[in-house]
Amino acid sequence: MHKGSCLCGAIQFSVSAPLAPPTACHCIQCRKQTGHFEAGTDVPKSALSVTGEENLRWYHSSEKVRRGFCGTCGSALFFDPVHLDWIGIFMGAFDGPTHTKLAQHIFTAEKGDYYDITDGLPQNQH
């Protein structure tokens, strides 16, 4: 079981499935939402349990995706492709060790010019 929360603790969650190796997304939307690039893992929606859901707010960044964040402290938490059976959880929201490592970088063609990706992991421009 993996647990996490927003910055203020108004939203807490647990995941009852193993965490897939996370992907770092450098797209413009993820950079604007998080203030840098986003690293997240995908889990089955059925494996996610959320408490404090009344504090959870959703921003529909497209017809296919909504992004979940805390309405109190603003912490970015979830990436939800609404028509699929999985949800992305931002790695920084987990409490304690996750026992996983970053697997790849995506949308590197949109990365910020103020940093380099030098970890040797696979990089996909899209």
Rank of each mutant, 00 (worst) to 15 (best):
C73T: 06
K64Q: 15
P22T: 06
T51I: 14
G52Q: 08
D95F: 08
H36K: 11
H26M: 05
A103D: 12
G88C: 08
L7G: 00
G92N: 07
N124Q: 09
T23M: 09
H126E: 13
N55V: 11
D113Q: 12
D119L: 02
A47K: 03
V50D: 02
T41D: 03
D80A: 07
P122F: 05
I106D: 03
M1D: 09
I117K: 02
I87V: 14
P44K: 11
T72C: 10
G74R: 05
D42C: 14
E38V: 08
S5C: 05
P44T: 10
I87P: 04
Y59G: 10
Y115E: 04
T34D: 09
K3A: 10
A39N: 04
H99F: 13
A20E: 14
G96K: 07
H126S: 08
R31T: 11
L84K: 14
E54Y: 10
C70I: 00
W86S: 15
H60P: 13
C25D: 12
D85H: 13
H105A: 01
K64V: 15
V65L: 13
D42M: 15
K111A: 01
T34M: 10
L19V: 09
T108R: 05
G40F: 14
L84Q: 14
A20V: 10
R31A: 12
L77N: 03
P44H: 08
G112C: 11
H2N: 05
D119S: 00
T100Q: 11
Y114D: 10
R67H: 10
D113M: 12
S49Y: 02
Q125E: 15
S16R: 03
L121F: 06
I117V: 08
R66T: 05
R67N: 05
V82R: 14
P22I: 06
T72Y: 07
A47T: 10
K45Y: 09
I117F: 03
P21D: 11
P21T: 11
Y114V: 09
D119G: 00
V65K: 02
C30V: 07
A47W: 01
T41V: 12
E110I: 03
G35W: 13
A93V: 01
S61M: 11
A17F: 01
Y114E: 07
Q125S: 07
Q123R: 04
M1N: 07
R67Y: 05
F107A: 07
V43K: 08
D116Y: 10
C25V: 02
L19T: 06
I117Y: 03
D42W: 15
C6P: 00
A10R: 03
T118S: 13
S46H: 10
G71H: 09
T23N: 04
T51E: 14
T72I: 15
H36W: 14
Q104T: 02
H36D: 14
F37R: 06
F13R: 02
T72L: 12
A76N: 12
N55F: 15
G4D: 05
G68H: 06
V65F: 11
I117S: 03
A17P: 03
R67Q: 07
S75M: 00
